[in-house]
Design a protein around this nucleic acid. Structure first.
Length: 428
RNA sequence: GGAGAGAUGGCAGAGUGGUCGAUUGCAGCGGUCUUGAAAACCGCAGCCCGCAAGGGCCGGAGGUUCGAAUCCUCCUCUCUCCGCCA
């Protein structure tokens, strides 16, 4: 959410931003509601002041019955008008907020202009895609050859985009989570295991709602929703708080399952476990002072943390600067890390590193008191440390061996009991 | 799931229809005193909208009333007991 006063003063900038981000926002309707609300509120406040004056007069009138009755009659008239005005005031507030929630954030000047993902700009490429001296398998063939994956029964249990991991694949999944969690924790991030069933306000605060509603699983009976990332719950944790500046920055590393409906993706990435409804993720989350330079520093730091993880797993990757048309509404700027997927002969997204300035903080009403005692909205950032399924794909495909086993990268071995390979030889 | 109790400022804890944004204690900030610290004493202190005047905020949302922290309804959360349960 942006500052209403800012929108009021820069309507053309907002319209331009909305156009560049391909986001529909009716700025004129928003401003009309704002004007209407301000006028309504001005009148209501005048009446409330009148009411307070009359209330005092009634007390001061004491036993003077006549004066008393006069004031009470006046009070009745004021109350009658307020009774009409107040519902209108509330209604305008609610409608204005609905519009406000749809206004996207303002991208940083360093965000490339573009219509969609094809315009994202590669800013870095690390590692060489491996040259195989045998015919490499894709993750599905590889995993099925090892009896690590059962997609048919998963579909029977839970429908499409589900999976059942088996055997070493399960151990690998847990090892990856441990590996990422411990690595980030060692940098001073506090590990967090948060609720994955969260209330609606968390999703509004984080920026998922109202626009992303159809991507979220809901449990209407209990008025909770399944989070698509721990970020939602972490934002919800601090909603409505005023933090102390000396407690900033707050650094968390959250671990959670993630649920995504993937509505509207029929026919896209249908093979294997690249695009699934449920996976696990270790997520970095930072709350810092309201300072652009500090946000930028953290954004780069979080990227570096994730790069180190990918490098330790010996995966070739590249980093993209996400363009205006592909950037989520709430973000000021975002980097994606994409890992090399041999079977596709291309890089695929495994990480997303974002900063928001005070956009999420305004929605979530998350503030801090600075050294001068001024209350400000915090800045928030987050980045994937490691997402289970996509990392499993990249790791298995990149480190597969001729005989169908998989070499475990050195850094991961401590989390797999010191083993050097996964699986049994079954081909070659 | 059933029965009951409660929710007030950073914390503790008064206040049951009329200058109550709210007594008080602790913590906090500033000052006096002190070589320094502690103690003592004095003072300042919450959040939101507004340039201001002013208005709003006592878990949240409605309602009753000229007037609500106080009365009514719904919701959320916490605690106690019973049931169920990994």
């Amino acid at each position: 959410m942006l500052d209403l006063a800012f929108i009021r003063e820069h309507p053309d900038l907002i319209k331009d931003v909305a156009r560049r981000r391909k986001t529909a926002v009716d700025v004129d309707a928003l401003l009309a509601l704002d004007a209407d609300l301000r006028e309504t509120r001005r009148r209501a406040e005048f009446l409330r002041a009148e009411q307070n004056r009359l209330s005092r007069s009634i007390q001061q009138a004491g036993p003077d019955k006549e004066a008393r009755e006069g004031f009470i009659a006046q009070g009745r008239a004021v109350a009658a008008e307020l009774k009409e005005l107040e519902p209108r005031e509330r209604d305008l507030e609610a409608r204005l907020r609905e519009y406000l929630l749809l206004v996207p954030n303002i991208p940083d000047a360093s965000v490339p202009e573009g219509a969609g993902e094809e315009d994202n700009v590669e800013i870095k490429r690390v590692g060489q895609p491996r040259q195989f001296d045998f015919e490499p398998l894709d993750h599905v063939a590889l995993m099925q050859g090892q009896d690590w994956l059962d997609l048919e029964r998963a579909a029977k249990v839970a429908g499409s985009r589900s999976y059942i991991l088996k055997g070493d694949a399960v151990l690998l999944e847990l090892a990856l989570m441990q590996f990422a969690l411990q690595r980030i924790a060692a940098k001073g991030f506090q590990p967090l295991d948060v609720p994955v069933l969260a209330r609606e306000y968390c999703f509004f605060g984080n920026g998922q709602f109202p626009r992303g509603r159809e991507q979220t699983y809901s449990l209407p009976e209990d008025e909770v929703y399944l989070v698509g990332t721990a970020e939602v719950s972490i934002t919800g944790m601090h909603t409505g708080e005023i933090l102390r500046e000396q407690d900033l920055p707050i650094r968390y590393v959250g671990y959670s399952p993630c649920f995504r409906r993937e509505a509207g993706t029929y026919g896209k990435d249908t093979r294997g476990i690249l695009r699934v409804h449920q996976f696990y993720k270790v997520e970095q989350y930072v709350i810092c002072r309201a300072d652009h330079e500090e946000s930028v520093r953290w954004h780069e730091d979080l990227l570096r943390n994730s790069e180190e993880i990918v490098e330790a797993l010996e995966l070739p990757y590249r980093v993209l600067n996400i363009c205006t048309g592909d950037l989520g509404d709430a973000k000021v700027k975002g980097y994606d890390i994409e890992c090399w997927i041999p079977s596709e002969g291309r890089y695929r997204e495994t990480h997303s590193d974002s900063y928001f300035h005070d956009y999420q903080a305004r929605r979530a009403d998350l503030r801090y008191r600075d050294a001068d005692g001024v209350v400000r909205y915090v800045h928030t950032l987050n980045n994937t440390a490691l997402a289970s399924t996509r990392t499993i794909i990249a790791l298995l495909e990149n480190h597969q061996q001729r005989d169908g086993t998989v070499r475990i990268p050195m850094a991961l071995r401590p989390y797999l009991g010191g083993r050097e390979t996964l699986g049994k030889p079954w081909r070659g």
